[in-house]
Computed example of a mutant assay.
Amino acid sequence: MFSVYGVTGQVYSGSFEGISRVNQVRQTRRSRTVQEDGFELGTDIIPSPIPTKTLAPTAAEQRAINAYRSTLPIEFERGPLFHARQIMQTKVITVNVNDSVSDAWELMRESGIHQAPVFDNGAKLIGVVSERDLLTSLNLTQNGMTNVLDRRVSDVMRTPVVASSPLTDIRRIARVMLDFEVDGVPIVDESERLVGFISRSDMLRVMMKDPPLSLWC
Results as ranks from 00 to 15, higher is better:
82 F>V: 06
89 Q>N: 11
139 N>H: 14
165 S>I: 10
181 E>A: 05
88 M>C: 00
129 V>H: 02
117 P>Y: 03
73 P>F: 00
87 I>R: 01
188 V>K: 02
90 T>S: 13
79 G>N: 05
183 D>Y: 06
118 V>G: 03
136 T>V: 05
162 V>R: 03
115 Q>D: 09
92 V>P: 07
146 T>R: 15
172 R>E: 14
164 S>M: 02
162 V>Y: 00
192 E>A: 09
181 E>H: 11
171 R>G: 10
107 L>N: 04
124 K>H: 15
170 I>Y: 02
112 G>D: 07
162 V>I: 13
184 G>A: 11
101 V>R: 04
89 Q>Y: 08
148 V>K: 15
131 E>Q: 10
92 V>N: 01
177 M>T: 01
166 P>A: 02
139 N>Q: 14
165 S>C: 04
161 V>A: 00
160 P>L: 03
90 T>D: 12
179 D>M: 11
135 L>N: 06
173 I>S: 06
120 D>I: 02
163 A>M: 10
155 D>K: 00
102 S>G: 07
154 S>T: 12
192 E>I: 03
91 K>Q: 11
123 A>E: 13
156 V>S: 02
131 E>M: 12
110 E>D: 15
122 G>Y: 05
112 G>V: 07
78 R>C: 09
180 F>Q: 00
186 P>T: 06
180 F>I: 01
128 V>T: 13
169 D>E: 06
133 D>I: 10
156 V>T: 06
107 L>W: 03
144 G>E: 05
171 R>W: 01
84 A>L: 04
74 I>S: 08
133 D>E: 13
185 V>M: 13
94 T>H: 08
163 A>Y: 03
138 L>N: 12
169 D>N: 11
149 L>R: 08
160 P>F: 00
186 P>M: 04
132 R>L: 13
88 M>H: 01
148 V>F: 09
137 S>G: 10
179 D>E: 14
87 I>V: 05
171 R>D: 05
183 D>S: 14
193 R>K: 15
102 S>T: 12
179 D>I: 03
155 D>V: 01
104 A>S: 13
81 L>E: 08
80 P>N: 03
147 N>W: 02
124 K>E: 15
172 R>T: 07
88 M>F: 02
153 V>G: 07
188 V>Q: 05
118 V>K: 02
115 Q>A: 15
101 V>D: 12
115 Q>N: 11
104 A>M: 11
123 A>V: 07
154 S>C: 01
71 T>Q: 13
136 T>W: 09
74 I>V: 15
165 S>K: 08
76 F>R: 14
111 S>V: 06
128 V>N: 05
72 L>D: 01
88 M>S: 12
118 V>P: 10
69 R>F: 14
76 F>A: 11
172 R>W: 07
155 D>Q: 04
78 R>W: 14
104 A>K: 12
147 N>S: 10
82 F>G: 01
130 S>T: 06
180 F>D: 01
80 P>H: 06
105 W>Q: 02
84 A>G: 13
100 S>L: 02
87 I>L: 09
167 L>T: 12
92 V>F: 04
175 R>N: 05
78 R>L: 09
183 D>P: 07
112 G>L: 07
168 T>I: 14
144 G>D: 04
120 D>R: 00
107 L>H: 04
116 A>R: 09
176 V>Q: 02
140 L>C: 08
